[in-house]
Write a protein that binds this DNA or RNA. Structure first.
Lengths: 263, 263
DNA sequence: CGCCCGATTGATAACGCTCAAGGCAAGTGG
DNA sequence: CCACTTGCCTTGAGCGTTATCAATCGGGCG
């Protein structure tokens, strides 16, 4: 999760966009600075990055009119918190974020990991208020897509509507899959499934599928996978001993994909 | 979950609709027969059941034009299965259903329970193919809402679009909450949370909140809650001994709401 | 009436949690 | 530039919750 960054409209509206991959983040990446980048993300790469299900060139101007600013978030800072009013969707442009939900007694459950190119903020649509919090795992930047504008656009452009529905549907499927992970798999299987999932999503977004920096802490991973940080750590160590992966701290290289899948 | 049934459009489009409650299903309910009811569900109760965010009376004819048939499903039968092509959303009109997802090795995870008045089928939107299966827990009937028609309508009527988005967003939130249950809570807490959730949803749909028939088997509940059927059974027995609930088989009465919440 | 599926309950074992100590790496201040 | 702090990771030992295996029970349906 490092180099390439994504343009807002293209992220939100394009299904998958394989980009050239540059990814060997052995050491810390240069943090993205800039306090707040309110520059308008104009059409930029969008024209090339193609709307999938055929937005005519007639609609391009409308697309470009989607007011869409960027924002940077420092590691550990929140893009939004549970309870914040909802008025925009986001797309991670660079870096990565985690989403989490809090039980009333304070326990926190990590509900998702978002790497560059993935949408964020859908949890606010139903109630007009964010139900989850989104926190940056590293210095990151996101594109802001005002929901009201997006809705209007969706009514004008069919393929845009289609795309938004897909986005929402994908989130539903992702979460169902995670329920299956949490409900049916053993600790080993959970960790393996998680690594393979991250790997695949990296590939989809044009990063390396077999090595990456996972900026979550062991505790975050544990929370996301329904286990303790110690068990995560032990499991990763065991995987390493078995020659399934190569890991030092947050850097992970998958050595034996088949081995992981067969768990 | 027994008596009242819902009209399709109203279900899909109305946020919550408190109906008069008649619910004391001590014994088996008369099964809904009729092989396949293709009668068109016309505007029926809809006019009364109010679109929330103001659909003008001008739009009523369009609403009524939403082609929308009903279908009955016998206990144990599937409304759709994982892999089936997706082309409609559904709303449970009477009865109840479970949704589930299968791991490649065959293990099945129950991902949801749907009682009368709740939507179904959202899992198919993202890929045009159902990812989950939906199986009737008792003889049930659903309303069929063709997705293509619905999409068209959403582009014409803003409040309809709003409603569909809310529906999708609610599903996302529901699933996030379930991830929290599976990831962070103990067995006791899971069962308690489940009972309270079902109770609340019953209340929202106009059923009794303190007693109901839960048509899932202990195994279904176990799968949904990430535990074995034995543990579910033991937990319910323990709750009963503690005076938290009253249970015999599928019938459940909640005696001490606060007690359950405080777990 | 008898069968069978589902529920209950018990005994035992295992997986993963808790508690605890130690290590490594990066950041900070003298 | 080094000592100190801090946050995160790793590893170990013991225990507890929950899974597993098994027997029995009960009710609904044929």
């Amino acid at each position: 999760m490092g180099a390439p960054s994504f343009e807002p409209v293209s992220i939100m509206l394009t299904a998958t966009l394989p980009l050239p991959t540059i990814d060997r983040p052995r050491r810390v990446l240069p943090p993205v600075r800039a306090a707040r980048d309110t520059a308008r993300c104009s059409a930029c790469a969008m024209r090339h990055l193609c709307m999938p299900q055929g937005v005519g060139t007639d609609d391009m101007p409308k697309l470009e009119a989607l007011i869409c600013t960027a924002r940077t978030i420092r590691r550990g800072e929140a893009l939004y918190r549970s309870g914040d009013p909802f008025d925009s969707l986001y797309a991670v442009r660079s870096g990565s974020m985690k989403t989490s939900m809090a039980h009333r007694d304070g326990r926190e459950q990590v509900t998702g990991l978002r790497i560059a190119g993935e949408p964020l903020g859908l949890d606010g649509i139903s109630e007009g208020v964010h139900v989850c919090s989104a926190v940056a795992l590293e210095d990151s930047s996101v594109c802001i897509v005002p929901y009201a504008e997006l809705k209007r656009l969706c009514r004008e452009i069919g393929s845009m509507q289609e795309r938004l529905h897909k986005l929402l549907g994908e989130q539903i499927v992702r979460e169902s899959a995670q329920m299956m992970v949490l409900g049916s798999l053993s600790a080993d299987e959970r960790v393996a499934a998680f690594l393979l999932d991250v790997s695949e999503r990296n590939a989809q977004r044009g990063y390396s599928s077999n090595e990456f920096n996972l900026r979550m802490t062991r505790e975050d991973m544990g929370s996301y996978l329904g286990m303790t940080l110690e068990t995560v750590s032990r499991t990763l160590s065991r995987f390493q001993k078995r020659g399934l992966i190569d890991t030092q701290g947050k850097f992970i290289r998958i050595v034996d994909f088949e081995g992981l899948r067969k768990l």
